[in-house]
Design a protein around this nucleic acid. Structure first.
Length: 369
DNA sequence: GATTCGTGGAC
DNA sequence: TGTCCAAGAAT
């Protein structure tokens, strides 16, 4: 409280007005979303995890498919990780799927399949932080637990006109979120707050004239709604160049490997390859990487496709070549598992997006037969 | 506290 | 076309 000057503090009347106006706006303009039509804590939990750093329109088809494939926490808990990753394929941040799977097993084993109602308990589950805990408990059980996701952060930063440095701002915003939260309707209030940020109080060109909080918004009255919150300049992303091998054996099968369970794209399958060293040709790189990682001999052939892909903190270009398998038993020296599969079988394995584009470019049969 | 985690929408 | 940024958490 020390960092909030008394003159800037909201009094009880302001708070009540803010709650009323927001809930009134939400009743008219709130979005109709599938996870708002259920009170099933598991379904809401799934939506909360999928929505982390991911827009609603992207999540919708995944959410429906997920609940068809894993309708209950029990179904998810007994599924194997590969099938879980397959349903998550394309959604990104795959640790979310691994954590959700593990957390489901914990809830089944320790809580008889019921989602705990205490913040401190749900936050012990992998993949559930403070914001997800608040979203889950308020939406599923109508419990008064605050949230602070990207939308709410932007809304409250503008409302308060805060220009504090990140750490202090974070404290203030959590405090505001908790202070404003309507104890009588925490579910609707939190959902309304997120809708406000997602539909009106957007990063660029917010629709202030339509905003129910216009009168109380410090940024609006200062004309700073475009400047607040201040956006951090993005650092230049490094660009990695990767040689990739589509290795065919004499049975028309192609070699894929499963990445280590943790870290980038953990547990997903890929075509083997590695970074092109300075002064190295793509062909040399592929031959070297395959020797180092799989301990087999190949002949590098024609270029298949070139794929550029942007991750959150770097870019890659994959230079993919057909390769003919010559000899040696493939060893999983830098991966978890190796398989020879027919092209038609590739759809059964979870791949990252960039590799799906390789699969699209792949001929239905080996070019060496 | 700073990094590391994907992918696509929007402009 | 490039850039920002999404219902953040884990390390």
């Amino acid at each position: 409280m020390e960092d909030v000057p008394p003159s800037d503090r909201l009094d009880a009347k302001d708070i009540e007005q803010l709650r009323r106006s927001l809930l009134g706006w939400y009743a008219q303009h709130g979005r109709d979303l599938p996870w708002r039509r259920t009170r099933d804590p598991y379904a809401i939990w799934v939506s909360e995890i999928m929505l982390q750093q991911t827009q609603v329109t992207t999540v919708l088809p995944y959410y429906q498919r997920w609940l068809e494939r894993f309708p209950t926490v029990f179904a998810l808990a007994r599924a194997d990780l590969q099938s879980v990753l397959k349903v998550w394929e394309g959604l990104g941040y795959y640790a979310r799927a691994r954590n959700l799977h593990r957390a489901a097993q914990m809830v089944v084993d320790d809580c008889d399949g019921r989602v705990p109602r205490e913040v401190n308990v749900v936050m012990q589950l992998p993949g559930i932080g403070r914001t997800t805990a608040g979203g889950l408990l308020s939406a599923a059980f109508n419990l008064p637990v605050p949230i602070l996701d990207g939308n709410v952060k932007r809304v409250l930063t503008r409302l308060s006109g805060s220009t504090l440095p990140p750490t202090a701002a974070q404290r203030l915003l959590w405090q505001l979120s908790e202070q404003l939260l309507d104890r009588n309707q925490p579910r609707d209030f939190n959902q309304a707050l997120m809708d406000l940020g997602a539909t009106l109080c957007v990063p660029r060109q917010p629709s202030c004239p339509l905003c129910p909080w216009r009168e109380c918004c410090v940024a609006y009255h200062l004309g700073l709604q475009e400047q607040i919150p201040v956006s951090a300049r993005s650092p230049d992303l490094p660009h990695k160049h990767i040689g990739v091998a589509a290795i065919w054996n004499d049975r028309g099968q192609i070699l894929i490997d499963r990445r280590p369970a943790r870290g980038l794209l953990g547990g997903l399958w890929e075509f083997p390859g590695g970074k092109i060293e300075p002064g190295e040709t793509v062909e040399d790189c592929i031959a070297r990487e395959i020797t180092e990682e799989l301990a087999i001999a190949i002949e590098v052939g024609d270029r298949l496709v070139e794929v550029t892909h942007a991750y959150s903190h770097f870019r890659v270009t994959l230079y993919v070549h057909h390769c003919r398998y010559l000899e040696g038993e493939p060893q999983p020296l830098a991966c978890e598992e190796i398989r020879w599969v027919k092209p038609s079988e590739l759809v059964e394995f979870p791949f990252p997006r960039a590799n799906l584009r390789i699969i699209e470019a792949l001929p239905p049969t080996s070019p060496y037969l």
